[in-house]
Design a binder for these strands. Structure first.
Lengths: 215, 215
DNA sequence: GTCTATATGCGGATAGAC
DNA sequence: GTCTATCCGCATATAGAC
């Protein structure tokens, strides 16, 4: 067989949840799309919520795993001063973009799905998700603090927030109807890394006034 | 009376939609929270979707309006070269932050609500929303292109995407339980403007390689 | 493991009295 | 304008035959 009932359910659920939200999609929608019986969901997963968890784990785990691996490699290869800002950001931003371009439709869906979770899922599921990501975020924040000894810690964390938001927005944009061609996707990634690296390396706020620099 | 039935419905709907999503919240939830009768929603607004539109218009219009006004002022006061990047970004990012700090709980809800719309609303509502915002975005993009003659147009648009995402993420973060103290909010805004201004002013991608700058 | 049939409840919307 | 009562459809979940 091409794929098992369980996998077909996961595929359909991932696609439909991502495109249209968690609550808008019924088990009937999913089972119809997957070409399986309605009762199969409860047989294989137990409930709609348990199905959502299974979808999440399958989709998200590989990206975070890859980010950790890449940072490990960077740190083992770098010298006393640790990896450079650009390299760190490349390791952080690369995997989601790679997932996007390599996995075709499935890759970009990952980010829509994150958005759906963030706005709709119950706290328990959000926590499961957040805990995984926080581990990654902490590792990267520490690496960046080391690479930027002149920027204070709370400022590094704020900037990491900005980078995350910028990345999510770029992904959402690319997943619109029409989408992005492969070379546009590459440009987007490089632009983002550059934008983030320059922003991260900025001096702290007090150095320059934000006004009166016209002409 | 403290507020009319219509206003109480709008207040409750805004809060509940923002916190928990559009589809998760029923008219029964809203009318119970507002302390009004279930049938009042259909009497005053006609349908759940019409209620959502009313909530949106009330929440979003003032911010975009304010952004346009501020840019008008900047441009009338600036000379031949037009406003500086920092000033433009200040005008773009200021109003949402002001709404946030001034309106108390209501201000921050605005951004959660945007997120809900983006992931859950039907295309018609998204389009209404987007059309308003696109006008603002176009005005600001043109101003930035003028201020950055050495950065090409598609790159300016990409960076505007990043700024939007960073802003949204900052807002979402601040709206978490615990939230941000007023002075932390100010720091967040200044950090974001600085981060964005520096990122915007970066040279185009080809100038520096992104690798091999370690040690 | 997979199906049909059904239990049970919540959803939006409305009719019609007051 | 506001209320109660109700229509009707769709949701999740499960029972039980095959």
């Amino acid at each position: 067989m091409a794929s098992s009932t369980k996998e077909r359910i996961l595929d359909s659920a991932e696609r439909l949840f991502s495109d249209s939200g968690l609550r808008m999609i019924s088990l009937r929608d999913i089972t119809k799309d997957a070409g399986v019986n309605l009762a199969a969901v409860n047989y294989h997963f137990g409930s709609k919520e348990a199905l959502l968890k299974a979808v999440l784990e399958r989709a998200i785990y590989p990206v975070n795993e890859s980010r950790i691996t890449l940072l490990d490699e960077l740190e083992s290869q770098s010298g006393e001063k640790g990896p450079a800002v650009e390299d760190i950001l490349h390791a952080f931003l690369g995997p989601p973009f790679d997932a996007w371009s390599k996995a075709g439709d499935r890759g970009l869906r990952f980010f829509k799905l994150l958005g759906q979770i963030h706005t709709q899922a119950n706290p328990e599921i959000q926590t499961v998700l957040l805990n995984q990501f926080i581990q990654v975020l902490e590792r990267y924040t520490k690496a960046l603090e080391r690479a930027l000894p002149n920027v204070d810690s709370t400022e590094v964390r704020r900037r990491m927030l900005f980078v995350n938001g910028a990345m999510a927005q770029a992904m959402r944009f690319g997943s619109n109807p029409g989408g992005l061609a492969p070379e546009e996707l590459d440009q987007m990634r490089e632009s983002l890394i550059r934008f983030a690296a320059v922003g991260f390396s900025a001096e702290s706020i007090s150095d320059l006034s934000l006004k009166g620099r016209r002409s």
